[in-house]
């Protein structure tokens, strides 16, 4: 769906084995798995625990502590809207409302066509050209509701072309 490979225990193990020798390896491992497959499948937890000599509860505790990590499959694109103060001063509250209404999802939700997962974010460091939005690894500035619609339609048309 998201253009990322489907995880398998072997593929997950390869990510773990590449990093487990680093000091403090857990976050790098979780990042690697999520970057590769779009999320950290629950099934990966015991595998990680075994490699790092930690209990499942400990690994779960870490995953759930950090907002960045997700345990279910996201849509093709993750779209983050900055909710922090500099963006608020430039109309991000209206932008949030527009985004939720036009995509018909709330935060952490995925659109019905599974194209877009909407997430909040607290500052993208683009605070002088607010409001800010991040789609994948691209950040966009001065995002008015109109610019938002353009960005979203570009995403969905591009996705169609790929199919």
């Amino acid at each position: 769906m998201s253009g990322l490979p489907q995880w398998t225990p072997e593929l997950i193990q390869a990510e773990i084995d590449a990093l487990k020798h680093k000091p403090g390896a857990l976050l790098p491992i979780l990042h690697a798995i999520q970057d590769k497959f779009g999320y950290v499948p629950t099934e990966a937890v015991p595998q990680i625990g075994d490699a790092l000599n930690q209990t499942r509860t400990e690994i779960h505790g870490v995953i759930s502590f950090y907002h960045h990590f997700r345990t279910s499959e996201p849509g093709s694109h993750t779209l983050q809207i900055c909710r922090a103060e500099a963006c608020q001063s430039m109309g991000s509250r209206a932008l949030e409302a527009h985004a939720k209404a036009s995509l018909n999802v709330d935060y952490h939700g995925t659109t019905a066509d599974r194209e877009i997962t909407l997430e909040p974010v607290y500052c993208l460091g683009n605070c002088a050209c607010a409001p800010s939005v991040r789609i994948g690894n691209d950040i966009h500035g001065r995002v008015s509701p109109e610019k938002f619609d353009r960005l979203v339609s570009r995403l969905t048309t591009r996705a169609l072309e790929l199919k």
Binding site: L27, H31, H67, F69
Partner: peptide, 8 residues
């Protein structure tokens, strides 16, 4: 470089 994970 080590990456954080979205926790202020």
């Amino acid at each position: 470089v080590r990456l954080g994970a979205g926790a202020y």
